[in-house]
Amino acid sequence: MTKEIIDAMAMQRALTRITYEIIERNRGINELVLVGIKTRGVYLARRIAERLQQLENTTIPVGELDISWYRDDADINDREKINLGVDVTNKRVVLVDDVLYTGRTIRAAMDAIMDNGRPASINLAVLVDRGHRELPIRADFVGKNIPTAQNERIRVNVEEIDGIDEVSIG
């Protein structure tokens, strides 16, 4: 049985709050770059960028990151350097993902970003933090903390590809 735990309104509100928090934390948006982790993190990153555009009238670059080759269960010799599509050197990077779970995806994403340049800082924004970390990683911006059991499944839907904004647990 799946149960909706964040509806469309609450998701919008969470993204809005995260956007304000990014401004607060960075004392502005200078040198800011958003990097979304594929697939849904990219759409969330774009929505945050749209909000920043509305507020500050500035276009913030959004990079896209597919971490498949950086997974810790992939062979490092197969690894190809990923083109993020944005320059991260000396930038303040905000990584955006839908769900923070073990932390392994984020570790891979940080490796991939570092391979592209040397950012001034990396922050992490996630829509849902479900716990059960296996690495020492924490998010700076969290839409909602949702305590879960290991065998539960968190599903994030975004309107752009799923037709609906919703987070459900099952």
Partner: peptide, 17 residues
Amino acid sequence: TTVIDEFFDMMETKDRF
């Protein structure tokens, strides 16, 4: 009333800073 919800969201996450 979403403004009130925003305020509660803000209180919930304040310890992160």
